[in-house]
Amino acid sequence: MLALVRVLAEAAATDVQQATETAAKNPILPTINEMFWAAVVFLLLWALMKFVLLPPITKLMAARADTVRGDLQAAEAAEAQRVSRLSDYEAGLAGARSEAIGIIEQARSEGDAERRVQITAADAEVATLRADAAAEIAAAKVRARAELTSSITDIAVGAAEAVVQKPIDRASQTALVEDYVSRSGSQN
């Protein structure tokens, strides 16, 4: 009986010992020394990161971002300047072109006016010349007709006097001859 009790007690003690051993060896529960080192290391890392390690990095990144932004802005300004310069140049070009066109137009219109004036003058001159010539022709024609009339009258009167052997009234014969000449002139 006593032996049984002793055995049971021993078994119980072994169980308890095993249980405590397994509890101490529980793979889930954190152990105090690892927690201590993890806490020390992480707090050290955090402090270093906050005060020593991160500031230069962020500063440099900010500086680079600023540089990039500045460069972008400079590029944009240069682009705007280029665009404005281009538009200026184009405006100047357009002005020069319109000026040239104006000059050409002016020259053309001036030339036209000049030519028109000259043509008018020449026309007028030609017209006077033609009128003079026409007047001359007409005068010559009149003169010629008068000469013709008088000579034909003379011939006709002489011939008639020779035929009738007596002087003929010259005035009445002149009217006749003139009638004839004018008729023959109109026939021609």
Binding site: N33, E34, F36, W37, A38, V41, L45, L48, L53, L54
Partner: peptide, 23 residues
Amino acid sequence: SWYGFNKIAFINVIALVATTSLF
């Protein structure tokens, strides 16, 4: 003990040293 230093603690220290030197 509360300060026993083992492989896990060593890995943590390496993490600290590696991060610090990288930065």
